[in-house]
Amino acid sequence: MNTVFVPLGYVDLALASLLLLFSGLLSIYLRLGLEKRLGIAALRMVVQLLLIGMVLKLLFALVSPLWTGLAAAVMIGLAGREVMARQKRRFSGLWTYGIGTTSLMLAGSIVTVLALTTQIRPEPWYDPRFAIPILGMILGNTMNGISIGLDRLMNAAVNERSAIEARLALGHDRARAFRPQVRDACRSGLIHIVNAMSAAGVISLPGMMTGQILAGVDPTEAVKYQILIMFLVAGSTGLGTLTAVMFAVRRLSDSRHRLRLDRIENETTHTKE
């Protein structure tokens, strides 16, 4: 097996950017008005990735539990903000941010630490070269699950108010009254990862595996890593989505098992497209 890693020069990247330039010209020619957004997004992507490349290089050189932990905390905090930004309806105060971030932290750290200490076992276990990319992959997917699950639940609580209150009025406790909405929210949150697993290897070659293969790793080894990551991501998405949805149900109701829509802010107009 030839394990040849082909390093890229900046000229190579510039060449590839011509493709984007072509899309931009197409947008101008067809008057789609997308050229500015395309350009800004591309510029953001380049700057963000170059910066994170330097940060990672520094982190990997340090191998410090403190700095690795700090980087992980920043990642979780940003992912939590993203969860909040994607909600059509939010709790008043910091509750939506709190629920999103807490669930991300719980699911992300449990699954990442489990993988590092029992399956991948680098030395030391918190070695950032392993910890940070794995946490990143887990957070990215868990964040999607949580934001979709929460969004679904909050909308259902408002739109299906009469159904939920009918159950409460019949003497069902809040867990039972919310059951159809909870099930639906969790299912929506997990569809993404179910689809990803179903399509893996057949319709799509997952990015991490592709990356390893490009870096010269034996495909059968790359596949094993990918399977591990899929399990971790699925586990964390399930755990995170369920946690967030359960927390949100608690907040949508009170100890007297009432539906508390007064705790939701008015529909936001600043929803991210």
Binding site: E160, A163, E165, A166, L170, H172, S255, H257
Partner: peptide, 20 residues
């Protein structure tokens, strides 16, 4: 407990709700 209370003092809303 509230669920127990609502079984004894039962409210039927003007607009009925259905969940299945």
């Amino acid at each position: 407990p509230a669920p127990e209370w609502r079984k004894r003092v039962a409210y039927v809303a003007a607009e009925s709700g259905w969940w299945a």
